[in-house]
Amino acid sequence: MTAVLSPGHAPARSARPGDAGSAALPVAFQGLRRTFGTGASAHTVLRDVDFEVRAGEVLAILGPSGCGKSTLLRATAGLDTPCAGSVTIGETPVAGIDSRCAVAFQEPRLLPWHTLQANIAIGLPKGTSAREGKAKVARLLELVGLAKFAKHRPREVSGGMAQRASLARALARNPAVLLLDEPFGALDALTRIKMQDLLLDVHRAEPTTVLLVTHDVDEALQLADRIIVLGKEPGREGDGATIIRTVEVPGPRPRDRGSAELARMRSSLLESLGVDGH
């Protein structure tokens, strides 16, 4: 892997010849609202989400479970349609499955009858030639450290490896917007840290816009340029969640996990999430 990504330095984009690499695009949420069910059983999950994600930034979306983090992500991918408002990527609004996005889900969601290699190839954009696709998959396998396991089936590798393959599948799409739905949530602590480092490497090499849903405050502080916290506004608990806080995270990445400033932000964010930050 070190051949692909030298540690600490950001390899220029030209370091990957033949990689078209869609330019990162901004994402704008306007008056987004999502209600599930109808009539008496209707319940609003998200309301009045207005936000602009800058092109190429890493945005972490924090919030307690059930607050609509995933719904926001799914609306961006076009997997879900908001009841009101819109999501705009670049200049065009999202309508249906959006090919400019790529998703890595909380579970790897790999096809069990395909090899890792074939699974990653599913992410390739339409119209990729076979030769180009093959080269790209090989490069991604190398990038996520799975070159030796290209021909393995998902059930023959560990959870962390499957999750890396899932990330590679998303990257194969050359996404303008990379959507990560708690992709490291189910991993053990050590693997999680490795995956976070990997994500930073990838982002350095290809600075796409990243929306990262997480419930892990430390992860958000490590990875994000900005953090939004979703939650219910005091006095409007009956309504859906909305953005109750936006935080700029200072300092270049990788950040010192022991920094005092981050520790302060950590307890303040935990407080926003309704946990005693002490």
Partner: peptide, 13 residues
């Protein structure tokens, strides 16, 4: 940089 390969793959014994 990352020692990712050191994780042993889980194989059905």
């Amino acid at each position: 940089m990352l020692d990712l390969d050191k994780q042993a793959p889980v194989r059905a014994p």
